[in-house]
Amino acid sequence: MPGRTSGRVPSRRRLLLAGLGAVLAYLLVATMLTSGPVRPLFDGFAPPPEYRWLVPPPAFAAGNTPPEGVRTTIALGPDGSAARGVSTPDGQVVLTFGTGAIAPHGGDRSVRVSVTPVDGNRLRALPRGLRPNGNAYRLALTYAPSGDPVTELAKPGTLVLTVPELGWALYRDDGSAWQEVSAQPVPPRGVDLTAQLTAPGDYLDGTDLPLPPGPDPTTTDNAGWIALGIGVAAVLLIGAALLVARRRRRARISASAEIPDPVPASPGHPSDS
């Protein structure tokens, strides 16, 4: 048919067999030829922000930026502490204290707030066999100038903790054991956990999921060149395909042009055959 990219007409059986082959090949690759946890498809809208590890797993070591802590003070008056938000510069920990969250304490005029990232693998083991999901963070509250520690909040604040992947439970170490803290994931990604803040201590999220596959540092560093190369490859591939198709078309046209049209036999003139 003129103007169409014609080819051999595949039978239904051939299409089915091709599909079976494609399915089997995909399952073989996805389940047997690749080590580690494998997603059905490595795709998606966009990569999440890179998590900042204090002690990164090997897959995330290259290109990792260490997390940051924060030290600040909250004013303390006769009615307690002033309302204040405290956040680490990298945003992986956000604390919110309401008015009076910290009770007044004698002649103290302020509360020192300290948030320090800690290697969760160096703390006591999490319950239920969970593994640390990202960094632990040590929250310390100290009255100034007395230096006495704040042991608990007079009014609950809020804690938002960023974790590298889905976690199942947030824990606080009260000095003797891990205590589970009720936490909810924050949309849209669900890797920010929000919880009620009632006391200082070590906070650590736990998960039983395997570590997600890390980015290949070589490819991420050269992403721009790779993108350019892929674009050029696409153009060349399509150009080559069209060239092949044009040659095939010309060959078919040439072949059909060489076949002479049969001369119809007219009445009264016997044919050669």
């Binding site: 996805a30 389940t31 690749t34 946890p37 494998v38 997603r39 059905p40 998606g44 999440p48 590298p164 992947e165 889905l166 994931p185 949309p187 849209p188 990604r189 669900g190 890797v191 999921l209 395997p210 997600p212 596959p213």
Partner: peptide, 10 residues
């Protein structure tokens, strides 16, 4: 394959 995305079903 036991593979999953870091983010949840939202």
């Amino acid at each position: 394959g036991d593979g999953h995305a870091p983010s949840g079903l939202t």
